[in-house]
Design a binder for these strands. Structure first.
Lengths: 198, 198
DNA sequence: GTCTATACTTGGATAGAC
DNA sequence: GTCTATCCAAGTATAGAC
């Protein structure tokens, strides 16, 4: 099955799995190699440094995920759609362990300062994506006069990240669901106000 | 000046300063000892393990801070007051480096799994504090029918944490200020709706 | 490209003298 | 309580044979 995957890909596979299972702390050249049944020296041959490998792993995970996000968000016409789409994507991310990988790398980029700027640069496209979706969802409503899509997008990404981290820390996934429920009610209220106003 | 401070206190001082300056990654028994002009072995004599020292440092920073928060929030009667108080406290935290210490320890608690549960337990009082303030601020308004103070408190703490981390990573403090501006407008809108509804 | 072996560094922690 | 000296584990990374 994985036997004929190129070594470089197998290293990335093993890296993502190690991040998911053992966290950033447990992700070293040695543990990655052990999990992937690979020789440790191959990592340095193919990627040079561990940091470059971690970034390569993040890039691959993000690329696969971004298409999915863009497609799902294209279909969301208003704020109420968007909330449902966001809740679904969050659940998928959680299931697939993408959330774990992201949280671990963000936390790790504080721990490993040389990683910081690279991680930040890779988050910008996600903020842009959120901004576009939000801009479409609130266009022509009174909310548009109240907040900049850019600020809301940043807040949303920050909130997502904070919830990830706290959830990661105490394993309580129910609270994320409560938040989506709050979002639902807020968007319902918003559209009621909107209908009453116009 | 600091000469007659007990050694245990001096170790905690040096730990907090190291977390602020060098981050979690740069905080080891050796770096703490060097910064504090202390002998490395003293750390283990007084605290046993590095983790216990980090938790002791967090406890001291939190204790000093919590009184200040409780006092400031007691004076906030409604949501508009609360936003102003929150913005002021955030700026103070930023200035004093409390935000750095907290972010580093949260990130570090993902990196150092044995730290995780302890850090989570120490965040709960802050969520409770936020919940109480929010409950008072939205009591008797239509918002109370829309969301649970508990959910909003969790979201707020998560947002605070996420903003901290991103700010920490890219050094852009302006965006946090934009968010307080958004909060201001939302609370103004909220009280306008409230006045119109009652 | 892949392997073994190893150099080098840093960190947590302890033993034992003072 | 404080110091010096040291052990041991784990990490990144490279040299050199195959």
């Amino acid at each position: 099955m994985t036997g004929d995957r190129p070594t470089k890909e197998r290293i990335i596979d093993a890296t993502l799995e190690t991040l998911r299972v053992d966290g950033f702390a447990g992700t070293s050249a040695r543990t990655i190699a052990r999990r992937g049944g690979l020789n440790q020296a191959l990592i340095f041959y193919h990627f040079g440094t561990i940091n470059d490998l971690l970034l390569a792993a993040l890039d691959r995970a993000a690329m696969e995920r971004r298409e999915h996000y863009e497609e799902a968000m294209r279909d969301a016409a208003d704020a109420r759609d968007l909330i449902e789409v966001a809740a679904r994507l969050y659940r998928e991310d959680l299931e697939a362990g993408h959330i774990t990988v992201l949280s671990e790398l963000i936390a790790g980029s504080l721990t490993e300062p040389s990683l910081g700027p690279e991680i930040v640069a890779r988050m910008q496209p996600w903020i842009d994506l959120a901004e576009g979706a939000i801009a479409r969802a609130i266009e022509g409503t009174f909310v548009r006069e109240l907040v900049q899509p850019r600020d809301l997008a940043f807040a949303l990404v920050a909130l997502y990240l904070g919830v990830d981290l706290l959830t990661q820390l105490d394993g309580d996934h129910a609270r994320a669901e409560s938040l989506f429920e709050v979002g639902r009610r807020l968007t319902v209220t918003m559209s009621m106000l909107e209908d009453g106003a116009d």
